[in-house]
Computed example of a mutant assay.
Amino acid sequence: MTDAVLQSPHLRLAADSNEVLNYRRDPHNYITQLFGEQLPAIKTGLFNVHLTKGIIVQPHWHTNVNETVFVISGEVITSVFNPCTQRLMTYCLRAGQVSLLPLGWFHWIIAESEHAHILTIFDQPIPDIVYGSDFLRCTPKEVMQQAYCISEQDYAKAVAPIRESVILGPPIGCFQNNQNNMSAQFPNHTGYYPQK
């Protein structure tokens, strides 16, 4: 054995993934974490995510990790944009089911049940996260106009409500026009809908 961590006389091989709060939107929607800082022997890392219906782990991508979503309870929709085929791949998952979100691929997760509990497990100890909210609010309106022929004023107005990184959305107090089942919004998905 050459791993110094495993040779330590203070080696611990267990930890509590509920102890370190990563983000809290409200008492029912929050993320805790377990990474190398909490358990030095771990070679991966995970977020322990609790969601209620309609809450979204906002669109983002990772520059350094693949992510596996494991559903402990409830039902979620995972969507990932495949840059190779230019297709959105959407999967409805229930307890015990898994989806993979490859490194660098834009993705998000939406809670479909009243309560959902998932683990997002990474193949490296610490994920680098690029939030869609940061990309949208930090890209100058002049760049969006030049790149996509979007009115600078329209773009500025559209992103004005995004004042900080959004991790679990929608932001508290955001008016929602549609509280319908999210799966109805993906009629042309390329996904896996398991048997009930």
Rank of each mutant, 00 (worst) to 15 (best):
P9N: 14
R12H: 15
L13K: 12
L13Y: 12
L13D: 12
A14M: 12
A14C: 11
L21V: 04
N22H: 03
R24L: 00
R25A: 06
D26M: 03
P27Q: 08
P27T: 11
Y30M: 03
Q33P: 05
F35R: 07
G36A: 12
G36S: 13
E37T: 14
K43I: 11
T44A: 12
G45C: 14
L46C: 05
L46A: 00
F47P: 05
F47I: 04
L51N: 01
T52E: 00
G54E: 03
G54R: 02
I55D: 03
V57E: 10
Q58I: 02
H60F: 03
V65L: 09
N66Q: 02
E75V: 08
E75Q: 10
V76K: 06
V76L: 06
V76Y: 01
I77K: 04
F81P: 09
N82T: 05
P83S: 00
P83M: 02
P83D: 01
C84N: 11
T85L: 02
R87S: 14
L88Y: 08
T90K: 01
T90R: 01
G96Q: 14
G96K: 13
Q97P: 02
S99I: 07
S99E: 10
W105G: 00
F106S: 06
F106L: 13
H107Q: 12
W108P: 01
W108G: 09
A111P: 00
S113Q: 10
E114N: 09
A116M: 04
H117W: 15
H117Y: 15
L119R: 04
T120Y: 11
D123G: 10
D123A: 14
D123I: 07
I126K: 14
D128L: 14
I129E: 01
I129V: 11
V130Q: 13
Y131F: 06
G132C: 10
S133V: 04
D134S: 07
F135T: 08
F135P: 03
F135N: 05
T139C: 14
K141C: 03
E142S: 12
V143L: 06
M144E: 04
Q145W: 04
Q146W: 06
Y148H: 14
E152M: 00
D154F: 04
K157S: 10
V159T: 07
A160N: 09
P161K: 07
I162M: 07
R163G: 09
E164N: 11
S165W: 05
V166G: 00
L168V: 07
I172W: 08
Q176Y: 07
N178T: 06
N180I: 01
M182K: 08
A184R: 05
Q185S: 15
P187W: 09
H189Q: 11
H189S: 12
T190E: 12
Y192V: 15
Y193T: 14
P194A: 09
